[in-house]
Write a protein that binds this DNA or RNA. Structure first.
Lengths: 117, 117
DNA sequence: CACTCTTGACAATGGTGCTGTCAGGTTTCT
DNA sequence: AGAAACCTGACAGCACCATTGTCAAGAGTG
């Protein structure tokens, strides 16, 4: 069983790129592109290896939802994320409740969810 | 001379498609596509001819800005407009002040600016 | 040592945005 | 009436984008 340890917080970098890609059913190349586009910012080990946190994964799930389900391109995702951050509001939740009748949706974690200041 | 008559309001349908297209420096075909996509909804004469209002033109200017300057595709524009309408706030103004240092930007008129309920 | 990671480049595929045209028909203006 | 501009629907071309995929040369990990 997985115990709810206090150190299992969603901002902790845990997944190497291959694991994150398999979780998200996405090619690792795609994840690197998202990072080049500034849409995600996974942590790095001292030896420069990407480590995705749970928040990173969830943020990428939002990217996938926006691109695959709503047809928004990466520039549109960038604008939406920037707007959300600028307004400090969970504006994107409205979109989820629009697509399906789901009442509560996961909020979008920040780009640098693992490097919380 | 054109006096500032009270009936010269920006929601009044005035421009036929060729005029609107030349104002916006856009092919008429493009305007029809925007309408097919549900991004603009110009009024029609009783004989089915499109008439764009000043608000329609300004809304299309927003579409052009989002697509040409920010690289957002039409699906992204739809999401942004829908978000703006759903929140009832001028969220897109934030974007304009981001692109250039302009302080005040024109608000985005509603899709059916000429058919105000 | 074998495996996975790094960056950088290159390419194929399918899709999109925009412009443009053609056809057949209707409306408008002179 | 006749010319010009509108309507819809279709088709096409061009350039760009998203995603997947590969290859190479190097570095990290167990």
């Amino acid at each position: 069983m997985t115990f709810r340890r206090p150190d299992r917080d969603p901002s902790r970098p845990v997944y190497v790129i291959s694991v994150a890609a398999s979780i998200l059913s996405v090619h690792p190349r795609t994840l690197r592109i998202y990072e080049e586009e500034g849409l995600v910012c996974p942590a790095r080990t001292p030896t420069n290896i990407r480590l995705y946190s749970e928040n990173d994964v969830r943020r990428i799930m939002w990217i996938r939802h926006l691109t695959q389900n709503l047809g928004v391109n990466l520039a549109g995702v960038r604008v939406l994320f920037e707007l959300e951050e600028r307004l400090g509001t969970r504006i994107l939740e409205r979109l989820y409740t629009e697509a399906n009748g789901d009442a509560d949706a996961e909020p979008v974690p920040a780009a640098n969810s693992s490097a919380r200041s």
